[in-house]
């Protein structure tokens, strides 16, 4: 967590306070960062020593008292990171330094009731990159050389651990897809094609029919009847042609190609954008 991230996290945690109070507090933390940087520390180190913004904000928002331990220089367990004060549950790493095994051993960290490692919190996922770094430090460097103390497993965030994520469920079963193709898609395609053909055939048939009909009507001349029939037939032909052009070309051809690609790829491709 760098200065800006820390400050904005703190600011958002403190949003319940009046804004001039927040400004005042934030100014002090900014000054703290600046002085630390002038001291040659990195922003990350400074953030680590400050403790999680959530925890710091807690003390501004409540009457709670910061917890502390007296450092014991005698046995080497004292050189740990500043401990993030805890209320309940685990200190889940939020990029503010690893928990130390020494800390676990002498109970500096609150443990959950069942003594299990902390569960990943969805809200921690955005900090995965920080978490990964902290995990590395935790596992490699170990807690200040206290390697003989067994480490509780580092909490995993699902986003960081693809190995544990089960395979993505497919929303398309390949057998079902083929059955659907054979028994539904192809019959519908044929039916649609037949409909289009019918639309082409209809004007011709209708034209022939009504020419015969009108010439039969007494008193109506072949010329008038023929013109009316031609007009009707042409209208149907135009509609039919429009349908053919629209569906046959765009809908059927592109749609079919997309569908076949979708099935052939084992339902992986989206099918569209042919």
């Amino acid at each position: 967590m760098n200065k800006n991230e820390y400050i904005s996290a703190l600011r958002s945690q403190l949003r319940r306070l009046p804004s001039n109070d927040v400004d005042e507090i934030v100014k002090e933390f900014e000054a703290h960062f600046d002085m630390g940087i002038a001291d040659g520390k990195t922003e990350f180190e400074i953030a680590q020593k400050l403790g999680a913004p959530e925890e710091v904000a807690q003390y501004y928002l409540s009457d709670e008292v910061p917890q502390f331990e007296v450092k014991n220089d005698g046995n080497g367990t004292s050189a740990g990171f500043p401990i993030i004060p805890v209320k309940t549950g685990w200190v889940i790493d939020r990029g503010v330094g690893p928990q130390t095994a020494a800390g676990f051993a002498n109970g500096q960290y609150a443990r959950p009731v069942n003594n299990q490692p902390p569960k990943p919190e969805p809200s921690d996922a955005p900090n995965a990159h920080v978490g990964a770094k902290a995990k590395e430090t935790y596992e490699k460097v170990g807690p200040q050389g206290q390697k003989n103390i067994p480490l509780p497993p580092y909490p995993e965030y699902p986003s960081q651990n693809p190995g544990r994520v089960t395979k993505q469920p497919k929303d398309c079963h390949i057998l079902f897809a083929w059955l659907f193709t054979i028994f539904v898609f192809i019959p519908v395609w044929i039916l649609a094609l037949a409909l289009v053909l019918l639309l082409i055939a209809a004007p011709i048939g209708l034209g022939v029919l009504c020419v015969g009909l009108f010439t039969w009507v007494p008193g109506m001349s072949v010329g008038v009847g023929g013109t009316v029939c031609l007009a009707i037939a042409s209208a149907f032909a135009a509609i039919g042609a429009a349908f053919v052009a629209f569906f046959a070309l765009k809908g059927f051809v592109l749609g079919t190609i997309a569908y076949i690609r979708y099935i052939a790829s084992g339902c992986k491709s989206k099918g569209g954008n042919v």
Partner: peptide, 25 residues
């Protein structure tokens, strides 16, 4: 000043630097 207090205090006591500021407040 705050930074001085926080860093001196956390040299001898296990406490997060950040908690010194709410305490001062």
């Amino acid at each position: 000043y705050g930074y001085e207090l926080a860093s001196t205090l956390s040299e001898t006591i296990k406490i997060s630097d950040g908690t010194v500021y709410p305490l001062l407040r």
